[in-house]
Amino acid sequence: MVSASSVLGAAGEHYVMCQLLRRGLIAALAPVGVPNCDIVVSDDVGDRLCAIQVKTRNAKGSDGGWHMRRKHEGIKTPTLFYAFVDFGIGIAAQPICYVVPSLTVADVISRSHQAWLATPGVKGQQRKDTDFRRFLPDYDRMGIRIGCGRDWLEPFQEGWGILAEKIASTS
């Protein structure tokens, strides 16, 4: 039986593929098991490549973020982007996608995790480090002050042009 999270992830990947193809970019799903890439994308000639890792959610959870891991702090590839897809609540909700360079993602989740570790837990205890990370649209709301408050992700919302510019400049 296929899990609900697998179906949601596949929906996110196909949504991103649709958006790329509609914009005249060539896109294909990467083979299963490629660790840092879900979609390979190119210009219409096929000689300028970028990769996309898709993170998909629907409006569950109180922080509005996406699951990440420690490994994502070290993935800093200029031609790798993340597409953070939020399908919202219910089938009628309009999807929102944030297209963010991996360099930005690595920096933000590293700084936010360090800030989180530096704050005491609910009972005043030292927090324990884990592999778990969160990529959030508003870190201030969670008490993590790293300069990524309520509107910090707005420049990346539907940021397909950021990816297209990178593909155009990659040789």
Score class of each variant (00 low, 15 high):
G90T: 15
F87T: 03
A11M: 10
L25H: 05
G33L: 05
A10H: 13
R111S: 07
G161W: 00
I52H: 00
C97K: 06
S3I: 14
L117C: 07
S6Y: 03
E154Y: 06
D43E: 01
R134A: 15
L153R: 14
D86I: 04
L25R: 13
G121T: 07
S110N: 06
W116I: 12
R48K: 15
W66F: 11
G147P: 13
D47M: 05
V41H: 04
A10F: 11
E13R: 10
C18K: 03
D138L: 01
R141D: 06
Q114N: 01
V45I: 10
I167V: 04
H14T: 15
Y139P: 14
V45S: 02
G121D: 03
I91S: 15
S6K: 12
V34K: 00
A4R: 10
D38K: 07
W160K: 11
F156T: 02
G9S: 15
R69K: 13
Y15C: 08
S5I: 15
G33W: 00
G88E: 01
G64K: 03
D138R: 08
E73T: 11
I89L: 07
A4S: 12
V108I: 15
E73I: 08
G124P: 10
I26M: 10
S5T: 15
S171H: 09
D38R: 12
Y98H: 03
Q114G: 08
G161M: 06
A59Q: 15
D140K: 03
I39R: 03
A92F: 06
I167R: 05
A11K: 09
S169F: 03
A59C: 10
E73C: 12
G12Y: 13
G149I: 08
R22W: 00
W152F: 09
L80A: 06
A168G: 11
